[in-house]
Structure formats: structure tokens, C-alpha cells
Amino acid sequence: MGIFKKFSTVNQAAKLKKLLNWYGPYLGAGIKLEYIADDWREVRVAMHMKWYNRNAVGTHFGGSLYAMIDPHYMLMLMKLLGKDYVVWDKAAHIDFIKPGTGTVRATMLITDEQLEEVIEQTSSGHKFLPRFIAEIRDETGELVAKATKTLYVRRRPIHHR
């Protein structure tokens, strides 16, 4: 749980938000975390179009669009499940729907139903590969890209807790 050890006090979400907003790849891509819910169920990010984050045709880099959502589902689920679970990124897929220009935003959510399913599916000690979908939208609300994140989740054996 490396990064979370630094945030073991009240207001963990706000502290992590500040840290990630100074994270080099996010700074370089122009990505900004706008909101992390105190209960770790929602994260909102934005990427503003800048001279330094345009590709050859003047739109957002596809890799930067993916970077907007990359770590968040894993971090959210790690925090929601706690140290009794192993959580890793397993796979990702992104569909580019239309060129992204201007400011683009994404909201990542983990619902009660999704969390309950993860807990239920891992209760026997088996791995579970939940999928989460995040949509990246432009300033008019049009869909720019849709990303699917597959995580690997397993409850730790009792002797490792």
C-alpha cells in the first residue's frame, strides 16, 4: 500500500489529490485532479489543451487521454478494500471516439453494487477481474473516448494480513 502510508491521517483524499497534481506525468500532460471524494468512491480529472500537450494534428494525445484515468480505479479500490486485499491493474482498453480538443474531463465512480460484487467474488480467496468504464468528454459533453480498466483483486490469505 506504499503511497497510502503517507496518508494515514484525516483528509487523505485531499492530500493525495495535491500530490498527484504535482506528479510529473500529470504536469507534463496538463492533467489535473479536480476532485477525490472523502469516501474514495469518485474521482474527477480534467485535461486542458496547452501548447505542450498537443499532438501533430492539434488534438490531445491518445496516451494522455488514457493517463487521465489510468491509476484511479486501482487506487480507489485499494483504499475501499483495505490491506486485506491485493489490487493490481490487469488490463486496459481505450476506444477513441472523436478527436479531443479544449478541456476534456472524466469521472471515475465505484458504486455500492460494484464494491459488493468484488467482496463477494473474492470471499473464497479466488481472484476476481472486475471491469470499470470511464468516459472522457469534451466541454460540450460529447464523448471523446471510452476506457475500460480491468483490475486483478484477490483477498489476501489470513497469514499475510
Rank of each mutant, 00 (worst) to 15 (best):
residue 2 G to S: 09
residue 4 F to C: 01
residue 9 T to G: 11
residue 12 Q to V: 03
residue 13 A to T: 08
residue 14 A to Y: 00
residue 14 A to T: 04
residue 15 K to D: 08
residue 16 L to S: 01
residue 17 K to S: 02
residue 18 K to C: 03
residue 18 K to P: 00
residue 18 K to N: 07
residue 22 W to K: 10
residue 22 W to D: 06
residue 23 Y to V: 00
residue 24 G to D: 11
residue 25 P to W: 04
residue 26 Y to E: 00
residue 27 L to T: 08
residue 27 L to Q: 10
residue 28 G to M: 07
residue 28 G to F: 03
residue 30 G to H: 01
residue 30 G to N: 04
residue 30 G to W: 02
residue 32 K to M: 04
residue 32 K to Q: 11
residue 32 K to D: 03
residue 33 L to D: 01
residue 33 L to S: 00
residue 35 Y to G: 03
residue 37 A to L: 06
residue 37 A to R: 07
residue 38 D to C: 12
residue 39 D to S: 13
residue 41 R to C: 10
residue 43 V to W: 02
residue 44 R to N: 12
residue 44 R to S: 08
residue 47 M to A: 05
residue 47 M to G: 01
residue 48 H to L: 09
residue 51 W to E: 12
residue 51 W to K: 07
residue 51 W to A: 11
residue 52 Y to D: 09
residue 53 N to M: 10
residue 53 N to Q: 11
residue 54 R to G: 06
residue 55 N to C: 05
residue 58 G to E: 12
residue 58 G to L: 04
residue 58 G to A: 06
residue 59 T to Y: 08
residue 60 H to F: 07
residue 63 G to H: 11
residue 64 S to Q: 02
residue 69 I to S: 01
residue 69 I to Q: 04
residue 69 I to M: 09
residue 70 D to H: 04
residue 70 D to S: 02
residue 72 H to F: 14
residue 72 H to L: 07
residue 72 H to V: 01
residue 72 H to W: 14
residue 74 M to W: 02
residue 75 L to S: 09
residue 78 M to A: 07
residue 79 K to G: 03
residue 80 L to M: 09
residue 87 V to I: 13
residue 87 V to W: 07
residue 88 W to A: 08
residue 88 W to T: 10
residue 91 A to E: 14
residue 98 K to P: 11
residue 101 T to L: 08
residue 102 G to C: 05
residue 103 T to V: 07
residue 103 T to E: 10
residue 104 V to N: 01
residue 105 R to L: 09
residue 105 R to Y: 14
residue 106 A to D: 05
residue 109 L to A: 02
residue 111 T to L: 04
residue 113 E to T: 15
residue 117 E to N: 03
residue 117 E to Q: 13
residue 120 E to G: 00
residue 121 Q to C: 06
residue 121 Q to E: 14
residue 122 T to N: 09
residue 122 T to E: 06
residue 123 S to A: 13
residue 125 G to P: 05
residue 128 F to C: 11
residue 128 F to Y: 15
residue 131 R to N: 12
residue 131 R to F: 06
residue 132 F to W: 07
residue 132 F to L: 13
residue 133 I to V: 15
residue 133 I to A: 10
residue 136 I to Q: 02
residue 139 E to L: 04
residue 139 E to R: 06
residue 140 T to Q: 15
residue 142 E to H: 13
residue 142 E to T: 07
residue 143 L to P: 10
residue 143 L to K: 15
residue 144 V to N: 01
residue 145 A to N: 02
residue 148 T to H: 13
residue 150 T to P: 06
residue 150 T to F: 04
residue 152 Y to L: 14
residue 153 V to S: 09
residue 154 R to W: 12
residue 155 R to T: 05
residue 156 R to V: 10
residue 157 P to L: 09
residue 158 I to C: 13
residue 159 H to L: 15
residue 159 H to R: 15
residue 159 H to C: 15
residue 160 H to N: 15
residue 161 R to E: 14
residue 161 R to G: 11
